[in-house]
């Protein structure tokens, strides 16, 4: 119990005093996971829409793969991204391994299936009559897609929340592709692992509290947006 109490005190102290290193790590976590989430949206929303609206052989098969990939273990992504980015790997010449970019790549790969899956599910749930109706308004293809996406924005925000939540909390891939380098690829989760192995439990507890607060703050903000829109409707 003493340890938990000390951890909480340490967390308060680190937050109140605005500890430089902790602040850096927290901001970096936000940047990296935020970028990865954005990329997963750029990839995921169009692909999800395409999958939902088109009919072709093997579509169900692709959807089943995607649904599996939504639970893709980060450590799997971490190892494969590492293999590709190591100097001995095919993309070694880019010198990306152990950089923040490598972290963004790995996290975007983790979040993309979540975004694709949730987007396509959301669009499939819309009433086919509605789709027909929008088309009947004489909309162009772009207008049609825009209106459709607007219709499902509630679910799209859920996809953002799920994607961000998945990447901000994962440690396996970040450790492998980032290497937990101070000032560069150290994020809140990997910093926690390091402090535990150093025996600094108070700081580790403080980091977990900060990470939880961060994840909560972002999710709260997204949820408020989502609900406001819901009520606005």
């Amino acid at each position: 119990m003493d340890l938990i109490w000390q951890g909480i005190l340490e967390a308060v102290r680190l937050i109140v005093t605005g500890d430089r290193e902790i602040l850096d790590v927290t901001l970096r976590t936000l940047q990296i996971s935020g970028s990865a989430t954005l990329i997963s949206l750029i990839i995921g929303v169009p692909l999800g829409t395409l999958l939902a609206l088109s009919e072709f052989r093997g579509r169900r098969f692709i959807l089943s793969i995607l649904n599996t990939a939504m639970g893709l273990p980060p450590v799997v992504v971490g190892l494969w991204v590492s293999i590709f980015l190591w100097r001995s790997g095919p993309f070694g010449f880019l010198n990306l391994i152990y950089t923040p970019v490598a972290l963004v790549i790995a996290q975007a790969i983790i979040a993309s299936p979540v975004v694709i899956g949730l987007t396509s599910a959301a669009i499939q749930q819309t009433d086919p009559k509605l789709r027909l109706l929008i088309k009947a308004l004489g909309t162009t293809r772009i207008q049609f897609l825009w209106l459709l996406l607007k219709e499902v924005r509630f679910s799209l925000l859920a996809a953002v929340i799920a994607g961000f939540g998945a990447v901000v909390s994962e440690v396996g891939a970040s450790m492998m592709v980032g290497g937990n380098i101070k000032g560069s690829t150290r994020v809140l989760t990997t910093a926690t692992v390091l402090e535990v192995s150093k025996g600094n439990f108070e700081i580790a507890i403080a980091l977990t509290i900060i990470l939880s607060l961060l994840a909560y703050a972002v999710t709260l903000w997204l949820t408020l947006l989502q609900q406001r829109q819901h009520e606005g409707k």
């Binding site: 936000l30 940047q31 990296i32 935020g34 963004v104 924005r153 925000l157 406001r228």
Partner: peptide
């Protein structure tokens, strides 16, 4: 409200991307 919500998210995420890009 609607527009606001969507755009705020995009802008914030964009900023994050640009920031991290700048950093590297």
């Amino acid at each position: 409200f609607r527009k606001h919500g969507m755009w705020t998210i995009l802008i914030i995420l964009m900023t994050a991307l640009v920031l991290s890009g700048c950093g590297t």
